[in-house]
């Protein structure tokens, strides 16, 4: 095969291949757009699930070769910039969570959906708590935890729906040649 190996994916370097390989990243960007869409709410800021976190977890588990840390960094910076949050807030919380809960890809192989959901619940709880702590330090104000907890519960509840949507993308993704490292 004349194509090059890109982190385990056999790719010919054609734009079409690149586009197929970018689907997970594009799906995360799309969910960021949905997360930020203004929703009707009696309060100034509607609390809603952070769907993009579900997508990031999903692709980290199922196709880590297509959504490496660099793309996650870009996506979370886009989220922070659009939401008006300090740039790097979500990324810092997310990467610290990854460092704390780093599990090899084989840990997730063959696990049932319920186990993955439980893993996501744990990861997102750590992430949102860290994000709340970081925001409190950054703004020098102890924010109430209740809205964060509500946002967390919504995010956990929305995971099955997001994973169902992401699973539909698998037929369009490039084939995996062998187990790939993340990066």
């Amino acid at each position: 095969m004349s194509g090059l190996e890109r982190g385990g994916i056999v790719t010919t370097g054609r734009p079409e291949e690149l586009l197929r390989g970018s689907l997970p990243f594009l799906s995360v960007l799309l969910l960021i757009g949905i997360d930020l869409a203004p929703l009707p709410s009696p309060a100034p800021t509607a609390l809603s699930p952070l769907l993009c976190l579900s997508a990031i977890f999903y692709w980290t588990v199922h196709r880590p070769d297509l959504l490496g840390n660099t793309l996650v960094l870009i996506a979370t910076v886009v989220l922070d910039a659009t939401a008006g949050l300090p740039l790097g807030l979500t990324a810092t919380a997310l990467f610290v969570t990854r460092l704390l809960l780093l599990a090899p890809p084989r840990f997730f192989a063959g696990r049932s959906f319920l186990v993955l959901w439980a893993c996501f619940s744990l990861a997102v709880t750590v992430l949102m708590t860290l994000r709340w702590l970081l925001a409190s330090v950054y703004f020098q104000h102890l924010f109430a935890f209740r809205p964060v907890a509500f946002e967390l519960l919504l995010t956990i509840a929305a995971y099955p729906l997001v994973s169902l949507g992401m699973a539909r993308l698998h037929p369009y993704l490039p084939k995996v040649a062998h187990a790939a490292p993340r990066g």
């Binding site: 930020l36 800021t45 509607a46 809603s48 939401a83 008006g84 949050l85 925001a135 703004f139 809205p147």
Partner: peptide, 15 residues
Amino acid sequence: RIVADSASPFVHTRL
């Protein structure tokens, strides 16, 4: 037109 919410309990802004 408002196009984006802050989607977080930390800041109350709109884009």
